[in-house]
Design a protein around this nucleic acid. Sequence first.
DNA 1: TTGGGTTATATTTTAATAAATATAATGAGG
DNA 2: CCTCATTATATTTATTAAAATATAACCCAA
Lengths: 114, 114
Amino acid sequence: MQKPEFKLNGRIWIETPEGKVLGMGRVELLERIKESGSIRQAALQMKMSYKQAWDMVNHMNDHFGEVLVISHRGGKGGGNAIVTEYGLQVIVQYHILQSKFKAFLEDNLGSVVL
Amino acid sequence: MQKPEFKLNGRIWIETPEGKVLGMGRVELLERIKESGSIRQAALQMKMSYKQAWDMVNHMNDHFGEVLVISHRGGKGGGNAIVTEYGLQVIVQYHILQSKFKAFLEDNLGSVVL
DNA sequence: TTGGGTTATATTTTAATAAATATAATGAGG
DNA sequence: CCTCATTATATTTATTAAAATATAACCCAA
């Protein structure tokens, strides 16, 4: 077999003593909730079930010491969800980390000589 | 709820266009095969099934352009497995990357202020 | 006051993973 | 030539995880 092209990849996340609380997927979910104002719409866009999305939101609200999403049911449009100021900060922080990590991966790609 | 202690964590791995080929678990497996000279013993030590371990070895041998483990069946002790010179290089390379990544995580831990 | 679309939750069903079990094939050594 | 521990592989069973389905609560607006 011919030598394939190797590349370095990885994932980073934020955790508490109780486990993982934030990764790529959840950040994207937060962003889509922010855009659409709806957990359901965000879930549809990401091709996940509403339950899955809701569980994620619920888990985040439960494990950061502060809520990231506030939701309401009923009313105009059936209900809605908004990302709090804190939630917005979390998104920004993650992106900063993520871009540093991206740089790390690129910097070390060259040292993968196998 | 009180603010928990956040920490940054993550994983890195090496992949080819066909997908992931090497991560923590596989490196540890290689090391234990190297030490014990046996896929089975390595699997037992890591509390995984022989099948799982063998599949990993097989997958690595199939996807790096060069074998990392050579195994024999029958004979003294029933058979054995050895890590090739190339496999040893792969282990070393991964550890270098891993220690750099560890440093990255520590360097950026401070910027996780949530 | 009722229709509509969403949040919230429980339950059931299905699919994917992992674990367990079984069985050849192998070859040095007694 | 038979035993033994291991490699190699297939098959079955059990466990988990995901997906699908169902239903209730909710409240603005028509």
